[in-house]
């Protein structure tokens, strides 16, 4: 096949997939052959803003669609936030409170801008993959946000200054203030599970009672033996962080309240 024919065929195939639908208020909805992983098409509109200028917008659909599968409140912080910012800058896209907009283009530039905008939408949509494939890099920051947003008094990377001045047995998050503080460990692997078990055993030897909570990144990724060991030693396990954030916070609040009441009763009875 000659290159000219191939070029014509590809151009024709792409052109067949693009449609323009007039909508209310003079807006035009551009149907493009690009889709979310569930098969839904991207939403792209072009609207005039006066002075012969136009902008391309998703009318806040992309992030809403992402919210069907991931927690979009995390989109603007940490790893995701940095990536979103890079995508915006590369493609000259504004984030107007969730509405993604490529601004101020002339009529001659609309077509090129639509394609650049769709490329930006594809990349924003791919931030979802952080929740599936690169979770290891975000698990720690997600757990930290879950814990510290509700319990700012929690101590990150706690170690016992008396018994462990070299911090060889760190606890990811410690909720102190009761006779049996709550220790929360993030478990991303079998190795992390073993480290948590060793630390828990060490605190028992030091006669420092703790309420032990394990939050696993994905229990399916741990071997059955490690899950069983954690189950034998820990007071509570959460099999995944994603989707359990509210349950984890509720559990910790309940446990803290119960411990305070128990301590008050003991003090009153003594």
């Amino acid at each position: 096949m000659g290159s000219e024919r191939l070029e014509a065929d590809i151009a024709s195939a792409l052109a067949r997939e693009v449609r323009v639908h007039p909508r209310r208020d003079g807006e035009l909805q551009i149907e493009v052959p690009f889709f979310f992983p569930d098969g839904d098409g991207f939403v792209v509109y072009v609207r005039g803003v006066g002075g012969g200028q136009f902008e391309v917008t998703d009318k806040a659909h992309t992030i809403q669609h992402m919210s069907y599968h991931v927690d979009t409140t995390k989109l603007r912080t940490g790893t995701r936030g940095g990536l979103l910012e890079q995508i915006r800058q590369r493609h000259l896209v504004e984030d107007r409170a969730g509405e993604l907009v490529r601004t101020a283009v002339s009529e001659d530039d609309i077509a090129v801008s639509v394609y650049a905008f769709v490329q930006a939408l594809l990349q924003v949509s791919d931030l979802r993959l952080l929740d599936r494939e690169i979770v290891r890099s975000t698990f720690r920051e997600d757990l930290q946000e879950t814990i510290l947003s509700r319990f700012p008094q929690a101590i990150s990377n706690y170690f016992d200054p008396k018994h462990d001045p070299e911090a060889k047995y760190p606890i990811d998050f410690l909720l102190n203030g009761t006779s049996r503080p709550i220790a929360v460990f993030g478990i991303i692997s079998d190795e992390a599970g073993l480290a948590a078990l060793v630390t828990a055993k060490q605190y028992t030897e030091w006669q420092r009672p703790l309420r032990l909570v394990a939050v696993e990144n994905d229990q399916e990724q741990l071997t059955r033996r490690h899950v069983a060991w954690l189950s034998d030693t820990f007071d509570k396990q959460f099999s995944a962080l994603q989707g359990n954030e509210a349950a984890i916070v509720d559990y910790l609040e309940d446990e803290l309240e119960t411990a305070r009441l128990r301590d008050s009763a003991s003090a009153g009875g003594s």
């Binding site: 009318k59 806040a60 809403q64 069907y68 599968h69 099999s239 995944a240 989707g243």
Partner: peptide, 25 residues
């Protein structure tokens, strides 16, 4: 339940199963 404030026809009602770890719509 979700609805876009910029487009009332952009809405979604989802039933997710949350008992198996990661939610599944």
């Amino acid at each position: 339940v979700r609805q876009n404030a910029l487009d009332a026809f952009d809405f979604s009602v989802i039933l997710a199963y949350t008992g198996g770890g990661r939610p599944i719509n």
